[in-house]
Design a protein around this nucleic acid. Sequence first.
RNA 1: AUAGUCGGGCGGUCUGUCGCCAGGCGCAGCUUUAAGGCUGCAUCGGGAGGAAAGUCCGGGCAACACAGAGCACCAUACUUCCUAACGGGAAGAGGGUCGUGAGAUUCACACAAGCGCAGAAGAAAAUAACCGCCCGCGCUCUUCGCGGGUAAGGGUGAGAAGGUGAGGUAAGAGCUUACCGCCGCAGUGGCGACACUCGCGGGUCAGUGCGCCGUAUGGGUUGAAAGACCAAGUAAACCGGCGUCAUGUCAGGGCUGCUCGCCCGAAGUUACCGCCGGAGGGUAGGUCGAUAGAGUCCGUUGGUGACAGCGGACCCAGAUAAAUGACAGACGCGGCAUCUCGCAUGCCGUACAGAACCCGGCUUAUAGCCCGGCUAUUCCU
Length: 137
Amino acid sequence: MDTMRRETFPKWEHLTGDKSIAGLFSRGEAFIVFPLRVVYLRVEREDAPVRVMFAVPKRHFRHAVDRNRMKRLMRESYRKQKSALIEYAESNGCTLHVAVSLIRPMWLSYGDMYIKMGKIIRNLADRLAEGAEEAKV
RNA sequence: AUAGUCGGGCGGUCUGUCGCCAGGCGCAGCUUUAAGGCUGCAUCGGGAGGAAAGUCCGGGCAACACAGAGCACCAUACUUCCUAACGGGAAGAGGGUCGUGAGAUUCACACAAGCGCAGAAGAAAAUAACCGCCCGCGCUCUUCGCGGGUAAGGGUGAGAAGGUGAGGUAAGAGCUUACCGCCGCAGUGGCGACACUCGCGGGUCAGUGCGCCGUAUGGGUUGAAAGACCAAGUAAACCGGCGUCAUGUCAGGGCUGCUCGCCCGAAGUUACCGCCGGAGGGUAGGUCGAUAGAGUCCGUUGGUGACAGCGGACCCAGAUAAAUGACAGACGCGGCAUCUCGCAUGCCGUACAGAACCCGGCUUAUAGCCCGGCUAUUCCU
């Protein structure tokens, strides 16, 4: 494994498939980093250590252009900061399903989004670590 | 030059860093009898629109339905042409409204065949007498009253019984006549809508709005979440093989109300049951549909034009919880301000908006800019 992890976000790290998504939303745990809501779920080891999806509801952003813009910012800021989370997941030997949705109709700049996403990733990593402790005990 | 009007077109560019999607070529790994497939890396060039939008019309395509015909229902409705088709487009024709004008906008089959409905107006809304005008009678006249005639005048209304002149009359009236208008026919021009005519006929020559009724043309339904195919696993049913003749299975019963367990025990032996295999349907998931087309560009010919023919060149996004991006900087374009008037400096703006089976239209949104025709006003030669 390279010492320098590349900042990629390939297809297999996207969360897809009706069953996975339905399972995540019905059984996952959630927390909020305003205005973003995060739902996550630990599942059995898959090919990817973490699989993520981003959502922007149509009722907040009526035009597809605006929804795309917010999703792209979310994706981009995740891509830049995801390596910590992936390392945690890999060391725990499980896969994490995550969904991040924008729950308020507000515009975030790239800078704001980057900070929020950083918080989300640290939060997720902490919770994952806790879960691992519990599993050991 | 300014203002306007119609038509057509464009709607950012470059650099760096980090990424995404599909494809080509190469290398490596895994897999396969093999063709090939999958994964990774590297590299090459490609990757939203004029509206991709609204989903309002028309087609292709697909599934289902369907003897034929009619009715009903829905849509459309000046003419000719274009087109795969259209409720779209082009050219043209008539009326109304708006504008000094270029133009804009709107109406329309038939409906002088019939029927229905319509009111805070008006005498009256179609068998029109309220006022007025005229005649007769009551009293001799006037006023007034009664009976009758009269649609020329009045106000109301979206609409009031074609208009003007003359004749006519008690007063009037298409009552008669001339002209104008209207309707029908004829002639001429035009493919046609229609236009024109010192032509012929018509005075029973038509009230407004809405609806019903009539005619012609088109329409089967659904809509890519259509539809076609592959299909892990699991349960039940089916087929085949093997095992087993009782310690299995199991109707029924008992301990015990239920489950497990134990016990009693009928029937069946080509069965039941167990194990293995097969085939079919089909879920998760995947593949196709799905990107070469009524295609784009250039030239040319025909046509006023929409468009069509011919020749040549080109291949131009194919995602699927849904790629086509993020950040930084520079430039361009436009506006404003300042001054040393150079496109110098500063500030601001740079839109609307994201493919989802594919086409043709329509409608709506849109910063800023370009080109052409025409109109009005003003100035100069």
